[in-house]
Amino acid sequence: MIGLPHYILLSAVIFSIGVYGVLTRRNAIAVLMSVELMLNAVNINFVAANKFMNAAAAVGQLFSVFIIVVAAAEIAVGLALVISIYRQRKSVDLNDFNLLKW
């Protein structure tokens, strides 16, 4: 019988994979993709908790919609930043991104 804990475990696994990607990838776009993975894991949690704990109201789904909005804004600005830095450094390697370091 699949219940709420299984959905939370699935979401925890996806979130952990996202954290691993953020911490160990060198490509800036890969890091952005890993952040998207983490946001999706959070969304699964919200929707599952909405279904299993308070199915009469759709508040969890509403929060998921807002998270999707923020994720879309984040990926748009993030990719624009990466393109902007690429123009100066000719690289998307995070090791080359030390413009704010002195």
């Binding site: 909005v69 879309a72 804004a73 984040e74 600005v77 990719l79 624009a80 930043l81 393109i83 902007s84």
Partner: peptide, 15 residues
């Protein structure tokens, strides 16, 4: 937020 993000993305990517 979406409006500001889109405008910001355009400005950032344009350089």
């Amino acid at each position: 937020l979406l409006l500001v993000a889109v405008i910001g993305a355009i400005i950032l990517a344009k350089g």
